[in-house]
Amino acid sequence: MTRRRTPAALVEADPGPAHRIEFDGRPVRALPGQSIAAALWADGVLAWRTTRVGGRPRGAFCGIGACFDCLATVNGRANQRLCLLPAEPGTVVTTQEGHGRADLAV
């Protein structure tokens, strides 16, 4: 009998009950303790921001808080690093356009 190799199988994980976060208006499953970026990766989402100049898609790059590529708007706050922020139940994540501060423009 061969079990499918997965990260969870590798470490024999028995996670607590999954919960939901919201990404651009749709529910995404998250496991307790996962970062938002991890929950999105698990869902197959790799991009949650478009760049200021070229409007290009970006997501997590360094995974450790150093590159700031994984910025997005979380619960209305722009420029949050999703690789660091835990996915709490009910967290609302929105794809961020550019600087994410268009509401401040005058």
């Binding site: 600087h99 501060r101 268009a102 401040l104 423009a105």
Partner: peptide, 9 residues
């Protein structure tokens, strides 16, 4: 500061 839109004219 971080990059911003025009907040100060």
């Amino acid at each position: 500061t971080e990059p911003l839109p025009r907040v100060v004219r």
